[in-house]
Amino acid sequence: MVERQTAESGTRARTRRAILDAAVALLSATPTASLGDVASAAGVGRTTVHRYFPERSDLLAAIGTDLLDKVAAATERARLQDGPADRALERLCQEYFELGDALTLIFDNPQLMNWSGWEEETPADREVLRTLERGQAEGRVDAEADAQWLLSVLWALLYSAWEQSRTAGISKHTALSLCLHTLRKAFAP
């Protein structure tokens, strides 16, 4: 009995993950895609999508929650406390770059940022701000620029890199390299 429940919960988790991943990939490219389109992209039936996410708003809320979890995990993987702050910020950009589709979806759809679960300033944002301020104190990040401004610039650089890889036909590797190069120049003391 316990094995069957574990298998069912594993299957449910995989199905839910498949729907979320398909929705992010599809909606980041085609924001008006229907739940039926999401079901096709996920390889499940429309009724399956509705069982997990009865309304489009439920799916979008789940994407938001999932993205916040992924940003928190990426921030942790970047090890912002290790080594010089400028190098930590480069690691952060590399980690965040992998979240491009989901973050682009959020940035391109402001109504998603109005969802009640979306925090104005997340713990990850606060950790990045502390890293920027540490970099300024270390003399490795421009101390004349406001740390909040630099955080906005970091997000703008990432967004530009994602857009370039999505629409301009440049490789993700090249887009990330350009992002990191610009980050080094823009944040230099």
Rank of each mutant, 00 (worst) to 15 (best):
S34H: 08
D37M: 06
D37G: 11
D37H: 10
V38G: 07
A39R: 03
S40Q: 13
A41Q: 14
G43I: 13
G43R: 09
V44I: 10
G45V: 10
V49I: 08
V49T: 05
P54W: 03
E55M: 13
E55V: 11
E55C: 05
R56T: 12
S57N: 11
D58H: 14
D58Y: 07
D58T: 06
L59V: 05
L60K: 04
L60F: 10
G64Y: 00
D66W: 10
D66G: 08
L67D: 01
L67E: 02
L67I: 08
L68K: 00
L68I: 02
L68R: 03
L68V: 01
D69G: 15
D69F: 02
K70Q: 14
K70M: 04
K70L: 11
V71T: 05
A72G: 07
A72W: 00
A74L: 06
T75A: 03
R77N: 14
R77L: 03
A78S: 12
A78N: 03
R79E: 14
R79I: 02
L80I: 09
L80Q: 05
D82P: 07
D82H: 11
P84S: 05
D86A: 10
D86G: 02
D86S: 11
A88L: 04
A88K: 04
L89P: 00
E90Q: 13
R91E: 02
R91Y: 08
L92T: 00
L92C: 01
C93S: 13
E95D: 12
E95Y: 05
E95V: 04
Y96A: 02
F97W: 09
E98Y: 00
L99M: 05
D101F: 06
A102P: 02
A102W: 01
A102M: 04
L103A: 12
L103Q: 11
T104F: 12
T104V: 10
T104H: 12
T104A: 13
T104D: 09
L105T: 03
I106C: 11
F107N: 06
F107Y: 14
D108H: 13
N109W: 05
N109F: 02
P110C: 01
Q111A: 14
L112T: 04
N114C: 05
N114W: 08
W115S: 05
W115E: 10
W118A: 09
W118C: 03
E119M: 08
E119N: 03
E121Q: 09
P123W: 04
E127A: 14
V128R: 09
V128L: 07
V128N: 01
L129K: 01
R134P: 01
Q136G: 04
A137F: 01
E138T: 10
G139T: 09
R140W: 01
A143R: 13
E144M: 08
A145L: 14
A145Y: 09
D146Q: 11
D146N: 15
Q148E: 15
W149L: 15
L150A: 07
L151G: 07
L151E: 03
S152F: 07
A156Q: 11
A156R: 12
L157H: 04
L157S: 09
L158I: 09
A161Y: 08
W162A: 00
W162T: 03
E163S: 14
E163N: 08
Q164A: 15
S165D: 08
S165T: 13
R166Y: 09
R166F: 04
R166N: 10
R166P: 00
